[in-house]
Amino acid sequence: MLTFLEGLGRRTVRGIEELGYHAALFAESIYWLVWGKRIGQPVRNNHVVKEMVSVGINALPIITVLSFSIGIMLAIQGIHTLKTFGAQNQVVLGIALSVTREFAPLIVAILVAGRSGSAFAARIGTMKISQELDALKVMGINPVRYLLAPALLAMLVMVPTVTFFADLVGLLGGGLYSAAELGIGLDVYWERTLDVLDPEDLMQGLVKSVLFAVMISLISAANGFSVSGGAEGVGRATTRAVVMSIAAILVTDMLFTYFMNQ
């Protein structure tokens, strides 16, 4: 019993320590983004653009497939469920709210965590074990400024942007299926969607995606920077980065949704 409590205590302390480390990384990145230029150590625009392409643009094809499928899936399930009450026309409301408030931000965040978060953790981890991080430091290039700050900024811009794109594609997917199934025109579906959709619904999803962007970058970077133990360590850190990111995304989503809808 005592060892169990001791283990629990140690884990808690480690967890708080890690949270503190994330906060420190965040503060440092913001410092470099805001003050870097003034002290002659700017965050390079070309690095940010490169990260934006890899986080956002390169993810568009798969995001399109996923959110389109989600839209259709919601339409199928929605019509099937609502048929019981003879209210299948209400499916438009169901799709509009679920896509913009939940599914688009979630699917984008999970995909970015799996695609870019893992790659980022692996890249930093590999650089750590091959002493490239030390090489950066001794050259006077701060690794947080050089590696994390551009990635954080890129994620902050691209995750919400891609989420908005996923909103549109998801609604389109749901619309195409519903229009065919209910025998209404796509223009009518679209009109009704705009009718029921409040800007606040859209904003809720987008604000969440900003939070997710911050969490993915910090968790991935922190795991990368903490790598020890060679190639195996890099593998472990990469897995941990993805699992932790997705867990953080889902729990935050739940909490955020709870408080926003009180």
């Binding site: 091959s130 002493q131 490239e132 090489a135 001794v138 050259m139 006077g140």
Partner: peptide, 20 residues
């Protein structure tokens, strides 16, 4: 100040530590 100092230092690491 350390940032300025680093410009006066060069290091060749054991494995080279070139950026891959």
């Amino acid at each position: 100040e350390m940032y300025q100092m680093r410009k006066e230092m060069g290091v060749a690491f054991q494995g080279g530590a070139l950026f891959n």
